[in-house]
Design a protein around this nucleic acid. Structure first.
Length: 253
DNA sequence: ATGTCACAGTCCCTGTGA
């Protein structure tokens, strides 16, 4: 079973690249972030032609998350509950696995109200994961907008006082891990940076100025069934790429 | 620390968000 997570930075702008990537890599389950589409614009039919059922939580101009599955999609949950101001979380059950696609708020700056919203959002995610059905394996993937450790940042000295690396954000990730989850890409690639995002500006990708902020959390059962987790840097190259590369996880179920 | 990209509306430029 092959699962991928990818912040596409507008599915409208990225459709051609996403379609060819799905054909080439043939993942079974795909977690998408930043579709930047309403549900009306989401390409349900073209995805169905590729063999994927889809669930989308769209907002329009900003945010928007989706799950694509070739192995069934049931019990879709959009957001945390009744007072979700932004479309950043969708969950579904695919082939018996509970999967979540997450687009964690950026935070903008440590003194910005959006940073407090980011921490509250991560705490809400930890709460629903703590309350999950413990008999069902879970995958929580997406753009977390947090580099879990300094290894996940190309130059920590440039990020002092910035978002994405602050201690409260990292503690919020540890609270998610404390519900029984493991950062799969890091677990399978100890010591390797495995960056997933590079700023469009300044030729960051070619200079290696990246962060690892797109993460795949799995429970212990799935950890032991995992055979690989890697970043497809090829998808960050060429014409009109997203600023994020897909992260892939493979399991022998 | 910025040599970019995508979006919508003010609509072929500008402000916002990343």
């Amino acid at each position: 079973m092959k699962l991928a997570t990818w912040n596409v930075n507008s599915l409208t702008a990225r459709w051609g690249r996403v379609e060819s990537w799905l054909v080439e890599h043939a993942p079974d389950i795909v977690l998408i972030q930043e579709t930047k589409q309403s549900d009306e614009k989401f390409p349900f039919a073209p995805l169905a032609a590729l063999g994927y059922e889809s669930a989308h939580y769209g907002q329009g101009q900003w945010n928007g998350v989706a799950i694509l599955s070739r192995v069934g999609i049931e019990d879709v949950r959009r957001g945390f509950g009744d007072e979700d101001p932004e479309a950043r979380l969708i969950g579904a059950t695919c082939a018996g696995l509970r999967v979540y696609s997450c687009y964690v708020p950026n935070g903008r700056a440590l003194d910005d109200p959006h940073y407090a919203y980011k921490l509250e959002w991560l705490a809400a995610l930890a709460r629903i994961l703590a309350e999950r059905d413990p008999t069902k394996s879970v995958v929580v993937g997406g753009d977390f907008n947090v580099a879990p450790t300094d290894l996940d940042c190309y130059d920590p000295s440039l990020f002092e006082g910035a978002t994405h690396v602050s201690e409260p954000e990292r503690a919020a990730l540890r609270a998610i891990e404390a519900t029984g989850l493991v950062d799969l890409t890091r677990q399978l690639n100890p010591g390797e940076p495995c960056f997933t995002w590079w700023d469009y500006r300044s030729g960051s990708f070619h200079r290696g100025w990246g962060l690892r902020i797109d993460l795949v959390y799995v429970d212990e059962v799935l950890l032991h069934k995992a055979t690989a987790s890697y970043v497809d840097r090829e998808a960050r190259k060429g014409e009109k790429p997203s600023d994020h590369a897909p992260v892939v996880a493979e399991f022998d179920l």
